[in-house]
């Protein structure tokens, strides 16, 4: 037995296990639609290894951002944030591998590159789900009260809100982005409907952030002036558009299409991303 004094501030094993349990549950909850989607398996199998590496690194940065601003222990040092993010990536890979194996999507006949591709692609969403599950699904024990401490009552920083909005947008949009439906809608849609979708997105952002009295809205989104409201709504929509564009590019949806098709795909997907971005700014706190 090591001396007691070095272990006084550690969590008990039971507490860690509970945390991992929440993480696994969250990982499954948020990524199950993707694990069950054919297009995602194919994208993973076809994707160039360097594109997959980019995806892993981007997810890692996103996880660090999430854990820094909204993680379970908001007073964590940078080292702890990085360690947690690596843990989440690892758990994500394990869960994705296990579920894909059970679904028969990872078999002995596949080449190593196919297996790596399909698991890595799915694991990144699982990892974000793990991170959110660990931090958000808890019952609000002692550890969860980071927000009330250290004078953060006035709301988390602007940078934090952007990171959170981005996390939410990616999580929501990633569930729809790889499907055929997005490209079909984008090709067939008229420009008037496209405008309608953009306006709908802005309305959704406005309603969630400023109007409908969502939990946390008054605390995290200060809005006492129409200009601020307009700016906040546009900011959320911008985050959604950028996140949509990046995800579509990643899933290879911009390969060999015209600029207008790329743009309309982005706007179509941004409806989902706006929901995520608004929710991220509020609900994922």
């Amino acid at each position: 037995m090591p001396p007691r004094k070095s272990t006084t501030k550690q969590r008990t094993l039971a507490a860690s296990l509970q945390e991992y349990g929440r993480g696994v549950a969250g990982g499954l909850m948020f990524s199950l639609p993707l694990l069950y989607t054919m297009e995602v398996w194919w994208t993973g199998i076809v994707a160039h290894p360097f594109r997959l590496i980019t995806y892993v690194l981007a997810t890692f940065v996103l996880l660090i951002g999430y854990n820094r601003y909204a993680g379970l222990r908001r007073d964590s040092s940078m080292a702890e944030v990085v360690i947690d993010s690596v843990e989440e990536l690892g758990i994500g890979l394990l869960i994705a591998g296990l579920v894909l194996f059970l679904l028969g999507r990872v078999t002995a006949e596949m080449s190593a590159m196919e297996i790596a591709g399909v698991i890595v692609l799915e694991a990144m969403t699982v990892a974000i789900g793990v991170s959110i599950g660990t931090a958000q699904l808890g019952a609000g024990g002692k550890d969860d009260e980071g927000l009330g401490e250290g004078g953060t009552e006035k709301g988390i920083s602007f940078g934090g809100q952007i990171v959170m909005g981005f996390c939410g947008a990616v999580l929501f949009a990633a569930n729809v982005a790889p499907t055929e439906e997005i490209i079909i809608i984008a090709i067939e849609i008229s420009w008037l409907r496209l405008m309608g979708l953009a306006i709908l997105s802005l309305l959704v952002a406005f309603v969630i952030l400023h109007f409908s009295d969502f939990k946390g809205a008054d605390r995290f989104v200060r809005a006492d002036h129409p200009t601020v409201i307009l700016l906040g709504t546009s900011l959320t929509y911008s985050i959604a558009l950028i996140a949509s564009g990046l995800i579509l590019w990643f899933f290879g949806r911009f390969d060999g299409v015209s600029l207008i098709t790329a743009l309309s795909q982005t706007i179509v997907l941004a409806v989902a991303a706006t929901l995520g971005a608004s929710a991220g700014r509020l609900l994922l706190q």
Partner: peptide
């Protein structure tokens, strides 16, 4: 868990 995660990643 961190060790396993790091090795995997």
């Amino acid at each position: 868990v961190f060790g396993v995660g790091l090795v995997l990643v």
